[in-house]
Amino acid sequence: MKRGVPLLIVFVVGFVMLTTYFIKNPTLGQARTLLNNWGVIVTAFSVGLASVNILRIHSARIANRRSGWINSVALILTMFIFIVVGIYSRHNPDNKAAAQLFSNLFDYAYSPFSATMYAMIAFYVASASYRAFRMRSFEATLLLTAALLVMLGNAPIAEQIWDKFPVIGNWLLNVVNTTGQRGIAIGVAIGGFATSLRILLGFDRGHLGYGE
């Protein structure tokens, strides 16, 4: 019962979604729409569940004064400010001050922090590519040459040095890369199909937490 019911649900839901792709039937179509709507609701609910989980973990960290607890205070405080201001401004569209406050929080708090975290990758990439791209073997030399040519092909300044850089860069991207990507995509699709079939038929039960 504990295993059978979840497996049956997975099979029925998967079967309906799959069948409606091939067969046009009003009843099955309605069932598909209903299941899809449930999917949207469940996903939205999972955001709330994740918030509760974050609250639980970080409250415990603060209560036990574990290392970095002050960061947890900042996280919970920020989360609550965003939630309260967001919900209030959403349900009171006439209150311009609340809408402005939410907009300011997004523009002057969330955006700069988020963009900063992403921008820092540029520095890590510069340092990592300097260390990693070495002509240690034939394959490494090939990879290095291709990377340099694509990079130079994408930089307008390199085009001013030699106008063939974009031509070579685009050829690598459009021909060599596309060929490889297509092969990978087909492989992933076949793998995905096989895995989906195993889940639908109940051979693969990892998603149910049984570890089998």
Binding site: A126, S129, A155, P156, A158
Partner: peptide, 15 residues
């Protein structure tokens, strides 16, 4: 564009 050139230069110097 200049950022790319810096990365390329460092890679070439290292190699």
């Amino acid at each position: 564009s200049l950022g790319h050139m810096v990365i390329v230069t460092f890679i070439i110097v290292g190699n």
